[in-house]
């Protein structure tokens, strides 16, 4: 900090806390009061390097090292013209070469190497690429405009928020005053117990405070995108399925048209299974149980045993009618 001093009047930040160091294109610093003094006419020469300077070009020094400041300045100026982009080059190699050239120029200018030569190079480049520069400038402008608009909007919103907050605070204060007055009025004119009156007021205030503490729901991300739209369109409401009467299981019944065959239980209890070959391990592994074909054979033996060919046709006709 103590290094920050004006090279002309030797004032330091320590002695003058409001010291403002300014810098110009040459990269040499001057304090604000010296600038005022030296550039009364709007232009003059730098006390260090005697380069003619304009007052409007003075700006606040951002970096401690003035050389950096100078380089930034030069870079800004150079890049205004050397504004080609990667898309403008056919190969990566060419683009890299171009970037190197730009860096060379900036380095030369900021370190005063071959200044005349370098300036010539810049001029030549400008002449050769006049159209492209113009075009890219336009593009840049567009982009910057957009960004600026965004910033502007954000600023506006912040301003609004601040105003709202201020308003709220004002109201809160007003309310407090009102409540106090009401309390005093109550104490003055009512005939009730003073303690209980104070208590009820205190509890009222507590209640309103709690109400206020419920923060308003955030409706957007910090980036300004509203998330209410996304969340509402992200999930469709689940359609409600109308529930009819509950399903009731009715066991399948079959008319065997013959003697009733045994059922699953009978197979074991009445000993049918002991008369077929037992289920072996291999069968079990494949999910096979002897009881299934056993029952099937029995069912098929009994089914339609009462079949009567003489009446069969008549029954069919009756069925179709």
């Amino acid at each position: 900090m103590e290094d920050q001093a004006c090279p002309r009047c030797k004032t330091t930040k320590y002695r003058n806390p409001s010291l403002k160091l300014l810098v110009n294109v040459c990269g040499h610093t001057l304090c604000e009061s010296c600038v005022d003094l030296l550039f009364l006419k709007g232009s003059g020469s730098c006390p260090d390097c005697h380069i003619p300077l304009r007052r409007v070009n003075f700006r606040v020094q951002l970096y401690e090292d003035a050389a950096v400041e100078k380089e930034v300045d030069i870079r800004k100026r150079i890049l205004r013209d050397f504004n080609k982009k990667e898309e403008d080059f056919a190969t990566q190699r060419e683009y890299d070469d171009y970037l190197e050239e730009v860096e060379d120029i900036i380095f030369n200018l900021s370190n005063n190497i071959d200044v005349v030569e370098t300036n010539k190079r810049i001029e030549q480049y400008k002449r050769e690429n006049k159209e492209l520069i113009q075009k890219n400038k336009h593009k840049w402008g567009k982009k910057e405009n957009e960004l600026e608009e965004l910033l502007e909007q954000e600023k506006l919103e912040q301003e609004e928020k601040r105003q709202e907050m201020a308003k709220l605070e004002l109201e809160l204060q007003k309310k407090k005053v009102q409540q106090k007055e009401a309390l005093i009025d109550e104490l003055m004119f009512s005939e009730g117990d003073a303690k209980s009156i104070v208590q009820t007021f205190a509890s009222n205030i507590q209640a309103t405070k709690e109400e206020l503490q419920v923060a308003p729901k955030a409706t957007g991300f910090s980036s300004g995108i509203k998330f209410s739209q996304q969340s509402s369109s992200g999930f469709l409401p689940v359609p409600k399925i109308e529930e009819g009467p509950k399903y009731k299981y009715v066991p399948i019944s079959q008319d065997f048209e013959g003697p009733t065959p045994p059922n699953w239980k009978d197979l074991k209890s009445k000993g049918f299974l002991s008369n077929v070959r037992p289920t072996n391990d291999m069968d079990k592994a494949s999910g096979f149980e002897v009881s299934v074909p056993c029952l099937r054979a029995l069912q098929e033996a009994m089914s339609c045993l009462y079949h009567n060919p003489k009446t069969h046709r008549k029954e069919q006709i009756a069925e179709t009618i």
């Binding site: 065959p261 009445k270 000993g271 049918f272 002991s274 008369n275 077929v276 056993c294 099937r296 054979a297 029995l298 069912q299 098929e300 033996a301 009994m302």
Partner: peptide, 18 residues
Amino acid sequence: IHNPFRPVEGFLIDIRTR
């Protein structure tokens, strides 16, 4: 097609059991 072979098996099981 329902053939009489399976019913024969059924009857034989039934005869053996009952």
